[in-house]
Design a protein around this nucleic acid. Structure first.
Length: 827
RNA sequence: GCGAAGGUGGCGGAACUGGUAGACGCACCGGAUUUAGGUUCCGGCGCCGCGAGGCGUGUGGGUUCGAGUCCCACCCUUCGCACCA
């Protein structure tokens, strides 16, 4: 055994050992319980970032932990390889996205291997390969024939200078990121997946996911947004034609207080008014400017204009004005709302601003009137007033009565409304899965027949930022109709990359299958533990739940509804940022190049740049980003301290679900700990062995182990790491090496460390003679004799009234304790 | 704007059911060893105070014998967004 801890040598040796034995290759084995541990696959952006290291270390700790407990564990890895950054890189480097992507994959794979993850690389997949995206296309054509995929118009961000569609990300403050031009909304035909067909099931099944964080389930529930209400019709006339303006409301009890209606700028009424009224036309134009991002729209000042059109109130017969308003969205519900200013905050503000009538129809906690300013009580349920025959009814009675009266007039009925909308998957971009549709002038939209799949994406194009190069490539889009054989045009839009990531977990079970998935998926699915960033709490996870059901209903995954049994959402990795300021311009300085000065108590006094000593300003803590130059390259960490230190640090520094704030100093502490472990093991290695048992130390080690076992179960890896440090502290204080307690303590410590620092554990396990391959060493199960509590709980009473409990060590001398609390009684 | 989560020393975090707040690590301070140290070891370390003591878990209230933990209001930070109907 070497005198000093040489991480690089230890890690090389362990990795070669695992490689030579194919330690992590797994097959279906029905004799053992299976455990499918999956981390969200990376986008091949170039190199690993700290978020990857954290994510995959969590997965690897669980993988190795379950392996040591005898499970048949699958941990695969692949690449979410389609997407926008590859096109951007292509534009700046003049290299095809494919080339850039494959180069990145090769480099990042090398990095992942250097971290020693227990991955089955035989199952690697990349979504940009035809063998993979063929099945995106295949499933799409199946869903298309079923009507679960369909075409309609959707709204996109349009850059009028580059004549191209922009992603939300490419719109900055309402302008195109390359051109600076004000972005416009534009409606274009797109393909949608009918996720709303599964809305009810996606919602109700959340109750049967005990292994998911409540927070994520709640966010999904709110996202799906089931609401029970009434669809109400307001008749109106347009150029002599009788029409009905339909709105949806959850507050039909307030219908008698509706004093106007508001429609979206894209609504037919608004468009009609725009033709004859210049003001309305300008307002509609104004609403079209700007991006489609809903978070931005929500913060716009509420504005509107009367359309000059009046609708008839379905109950009173009164004429009420129809306004066009920027806060009404065409994509939600009917694109129109009825406004009840007295009992809705937004309508209240709007009515106040434009002098529209406010008619209270509900008795609320503060009375029968609704004086400004707005009070939340106005929106609460109450008894109807000023509502004619509905006076005195409560919410439920009024809704029932009004819905019945509307139904009698054929102007309404009860309806369930969902917030969830169908999923638009068309992207006017090159680097994605081609949508397998052929547009035939005679036959219409024809799905590509199975025998012609995949529709291959040419891999040698270089986009230039002015639209999809596929649309300029006749050899791609010129084709024949598969039905009639006449000239036809192939669809050039590609799929949203969320399609790729909505089923990859099932493909890992059978990466070489000649079908989308085969029977091996029945063995491995569902994923037992899924790990990934909290930022995917809604979209990716919801789409995956939808896809699993769609695949189930295609007969691909019989009986499977939920893809992920347990979900762990890791927190973001954050870092401090610093900048220098000159002429009002900020230059961001990487934290690695900053020296921080502290006072005698460790408080930060000042910071300066290493190179020239220039003072730098603290820019706060935040996610690692290029713009703030505060990224920490994990490769530097691995090169300097080794993979085990990187792994130990990321586990130890913070509980997995919290944000992790980067700290160079703590890395050093982790490395120092591993070196101490090495030194202790070396001393045992050299020592003369005795059978001496140090009772107190042994007791403390086992107590710490029990706590660590418990913490591992609840995924508190940071306290497991702390437990390792505590055990070493105990071991180092033993009077002499080589005792039975020292040897047993070391074997416990190494086994506890094995999931976190597998290379070091592997090496010490062999050197200290515990066995050849520690992957087969059982996780230390608590000693049943010691399982009895380490502490006993004493109930403290005063005059017979329970005043709490006191925990004392089991060995504590009760007689010695009693005098300290003479006024109390122990029970 | 809406939905979700979180605020504990100089820092990351412990504290399981309401019961000694600050485990473990970092930083910092003191000491020892060392030719030296960005080494190792030992000790100290919430704040105020010479001290006795007082104050302390974002802020302000409340429940309780007892609150980091439960309730109400507010402030701040982070994540998500297809705004609300």
């Amino acid at each position: 055994m070497q005198d000093t801890y040489d991480a690089q040598a230890v890690e090389r040796e362990a990795q070669e050992f695992w490689e030579s034995r194919a330690s992590f290759r797994v097959t279906e084995d029905t004799s053992r319980p299976k455990y499918y541990c999956l981390s969200m696959f990376p986008y091949p952006s170039g190199k690993l970032h700290m978020g990857h290291v954290r994510n995959y270390t969590i997965g690897d700790v669980l993988t190795r932990y379950y392996r040591m407990r005898g499970y048949n564990v699958l941990q695969p890895m692949g690449w979410d390889a389609f997407g926008l950054p590859a096109e951007n890189a292509a534009m700046s480097n003049k290299v095809p996205p494919a080339r850039w992507t494959y180069d990145n994959i090769a480099y990042m794979k090398k990095q992942l291997k250097s971290l020693g993850f227990a991955l089955d690389w035989d199952r690697e997949l990349a979504t940009c390969r035809p063998e993979y995206y063929k099945w995106n296309q295949w499933l799409f054509t199946r869903l298309f024939r079923k009507g679960l995929a369909y075409k309609k118009t959707g709204v996109v961000n349009w850059d009028p200078v580059d004549q191209t569609v922009l992603a939300n990300e490419q719109v900055i403050d309402g302008r195109g990121w390359r051109t600076g031009a004000v972005v416009e909304k534009r409606e274009i035909p797109m393909y949608f997946l009918r996720i709303t067909a599964y809305a009810e099931e996606l919602l109700s099944a959340l109750d049967e996911l005990p292994g998911w964080p409540e927070q994520v389930k709640l966010m999904q529930k709110n996202w799906i947004g089931k609401s029970e209400g009434v669809r109400v019709g307001f008749p109106y006339e347009l150029d002599g034609r009788k029409e009905t303006l339909w709105v949806f409301t959850t507050r039909a009890d307030t219908l008698m207080g509706a004093t106007f209606c508001a429609v979206a700028a894209e609504h037919p009424i608004a468009l009609h008014a725009a033709r004859s009224n210049r003001e309305v036309r300008e307002f509609v134009e104004e609403c079209k400017r700007g991006a489609v991002m809903e978070a931005d729209l929500a913060q716009l000042e509420k504005k509107g204009l009367p359309t000059g059109i009046f609708a008839t109130h379905p109950l009173t017969g009164e004429k009420i004005p129809v306004w066009v308003a920027n806060y009404v969205l065409m994509g939600y519900g009917e694109g129109a709302v009825m406004a009840v200013p007295a009992h809705d905050e937004r309508d209240f503000e709007f009515a106040e601003k434009y002098g529209l009538p406010i008619k209270p129809v509900i008795r609320h906690a503060l009375g029968d009137t609704v004086p400004a300013p707005w009070k939340p009580e106005y929106a609460e349920h109450g008894v109807c007033i000023n509502s004619g025959k509905y006076d005195g009814m409560d919410f439920g009675q009024a809704v029932d009565a009004i819905a019945a009266d509307l139904a009698a007039k054929r102007l309404g009925e009860k309806q369930t409304q969902w917030r969830l909308r169908d999923w638009g998957i068309s992207r006017q971009r090159y680097w994605g899965t081609p949508i397998p549709i052929i547009h035939c002038p005679a036959c219409g939209d024809v799905p590509v027949p199975e025998k012609d799949l995949p529709v291959r994406l040419p891999e040698d194009l270089v986009p230039d930022g002015t639209g999809n190069p596929l649309a300029r490539l006749p050899s791609f889009y010129e084709t024949k109709c598969p039905q009639c054989g006449k000239d036809a045009r192939r669809e050039t839009d590609t799929m949203d990359t969320f399609v790729d990531s909505s089923w990859y977990f099932a493909r890992y079970a059978c990466p070489d299958a000649d079908r989308m998935v085969d029977e091996r998926a029945r063995y491995w699915m569902p994923v037992d533990q899924y790990i990934g960033g909290i930022e995917h709490a809604i979209l990716h996870l919801l789409y995956s739940r939808f896809f699993t059901r769609a695949m189930r209903d295609e007969g691909l995954l019989p009986g499977l509804a939920e893809p992920f049994t347990n979900l762990l959402t890791q927190g973001m990795v954050l870092a401090e940022s610093y900048y220098t300021e000159a002429d009002g311009r900020r230059e961001w300085v990487n934290p690695a190049d900053v020296i921080v000065e502290k006072d005698a108590k460790g408080k930060v006094l000042a910071a300066r740049r290493k190179s020239d000593g220039a003072p730098v300003v603290y820019g706060g803590i935040g996610t690692m980003s290029k713009s703030k130059n505060n990224g920490v390259d994990p490769q530097a960490l691995i090169d300097r301290y080794g993979a085990d230190t990187a792994r130990f640090y990321t586990m130890f520094a913070s509980p997995p679900t919290n944000t992790l704030e980067w700290s160079d100093e703590s890395v050093e502490g982790s490395f120092r700990f591993l070196r101490r472990v090495w030194a202790f093991a070396l001393a045992q290695h050299k020592a003369h062995k005795t059978t001496d048992v140090q009772k107190d130390a042994r007791h403390e080690i086992h107590a710490t182990l029990r706590q660590a076992n418990y913490d591992m179960q609840r995924h508190q890896f940071n306290t497991v790491a702390s437990a390792c440090m505590k055990i070493l502290n105990v071991l180092e204080k033993l009077p002499s090496p080589g005792t039975a307690t020292a040897v047993e303590g070391l074997s416990i410590l190494v086994r506890l460390l094995a999931p976190i620092t597998p290379h070091l554990a592997h090496h010490l396990w062999r050197e200290c003679g515990f066995g050849e391959d520690m992957l087969h060493a059982a996780w230390p199960e608590p000693d049943p004799a010691a399982l009895e509590q380490d502490e006993v709980e004493l109930v403290v009473q005063v005059n017979g009234v329970k005043r709490g409990t006191v925990r004392v060590p089991r060995e504590a001398d009760r007689a010695a304790l009693e005098p300290l609390v003479t006024s109390l009684d122990f029970v």
